[in-house]
Computed example of a mutant assay.
Amino acid sequence: MARAQLWTKDFIVGIGLNLAMSMVFYLLMTSMAGYAVARFAAGEAAAGFASSSFVVGAVVARVLTGKYLDFIGRRKLLIITMAISILASVAYMLADTLVWLFAIRIIHGIAFGAGNTAIMTAIQSVIPSSRRGEGTGYFGTATTLSTALGPYLGVVLPRAYDFPMLFAASAIMSIVAFSLCLIIRLPKQELSDYQRRSKWHLKLSTLVDPAGLRIGAIMLIVGIAYAAALVFLAGYAADSGVPAAASLFFVAFAVASLVARLFVGRLQDVLGDNFVIYPVFAFNLVGNVLLAMWPTMPGIILAGIFVGLGFGSLMPCMQAIAVKSVAMARVPVATSSFFLLLDAGSGIGPIILGAIKPLTGGSGMFMLCAGLVVLGAVVYTFVHGRYRGGRPGREFLG
């Protein structure tokens, strides 16, 4: 039997759209706190909120987008949100007070949260169901690339050309994303009777999906651990006498993630979720232990490889599980629920770990993150692994 076609024009365009959209997120997330300090002399707390307020907007958007996505239309919402992203990128240059900067960040976050939920949901209608894990993994390579390129440009552009060039780059990426929204063609989604009846019912069951929350809870826990590397690794590496190791960690992370995603999704489709997920947790655990115990140049680079194989592979694998766990009509809500908790981990992780770090030191903090990875594996076992994590086509009761 011939395999279902995966590499269609719309799938390739979707990968490009995801890359451009994710680049805007990581480009600005890395540098916004520094901009708030440089431009408005913001204190530590205000500078932190200048960065995380984007996530606040994204979380709010995800709650409602899952329910109303198919009423608005997936392609239409993508076009609207990317147009807002262009305007927001330009508006950063015009903001003359810190309050206006916060407002623009929240609006930009809302646009990103809605648009990202739309493309993450829409691409599942383009991927053949028999190649769900493989297709989701390939699609996620765009996000992986952006985690390396975005922070790199977020540091280099302000140093070389000042912050207006950073916002110009954000606007250019948003224009690219907007253009790709006009090109992509997505299957029309028919609304179910339940969706029509519950359109204006803002009950919890219509805003979030239990399967998306169950799998998303795993990403919340493990996402807090990854937030430690995103936010605190640069300082930890500098304190350890190897400041250059932090940037090389993310290069190693991106390369390892890209390599893993070439085959991890296909293994998941053929051999089952558990065959892939438990090794992925093990790799992530080893990476965090290396950061805690061996903060040298080779140790941090090696940790980047293991975390890339681990956390870098975990997100697309878990998203594929969340999508497979629900009926097609519930995919938008399940997707928004999944990313809602992933965003929450990214948002609260730096706050929690920042409070703990003075008590534990950097080494103790990363060892705590290793414990969070173990906790994530335990939660996975209880919510999915021991019931439906085995080889496709049969239940796994081990």
Rank of each mutant, 00 (worst) to 15 (best):
G48V: 08
K203N: 02
F249R: 04
A344F: 10
V56Q: 06
V286W: 00
L359H: 11
F11D: 06
S346P: 00
V331Q: 03
W7I: 12
A142G: 15
S130C: 11
Q189Y: 12
G310Q: 06
V222H: 00
C317S: 13
V37Q: 10
I218K: 04
F396T: 06
P358Q: 07
T117A: 13
V378S: 09
A103C: 08
A238L: 08
G73L: 08
I224W: 02
F275M: 15
V270P: 02
N284P: 08
S53I: 06
T143R: 05
G398K: 14
F281N: 00
Y380Q: 06
P158R: 10
A217N: 03
V259S: 07
E44N: 15
V276P: 00
I123R: 05
F283P: 01
T97W: 06
F275A: 14
F250D: 03
A227C: 10
I277R: 03
L157M: 12
G349L: 12
V126Q: 03
S205H: 01
G361Y: 04
G43P: 04
Q124S: 15
P187S: 14
K203R: 10
A234N: 07
G390E: 07
A171S: 07
E395R: 14
L233C: 04
D193I: 13
G235C: 07
G361E: 02
I84E: 00
R105W: 01
E190V: 15
F11E: 07
L202I: 02
M173W: 09
R62P: 00
E190Q: 15
I72V: 13
A256I: 02
Q319P: 01
F281S: 00
W294I: 09
C181T: 14
S247R: 15
C369W: 00
R388T: 01
W100H: 05
P243C: 11
L342K: 01
P243E: 03
L309N: 05
V126H: 03
M173G: 10
R394H: 12
R39D: 06
S22C: 11
I80K: 11
V251E: 01
I351N: 05
T381F: 15
P128N: 08
A256Q: 00
T8H: 12
I175P: 01
L77D: 01
Y92A: 06
R196D: 03
L248I: 08
I356Q: 05
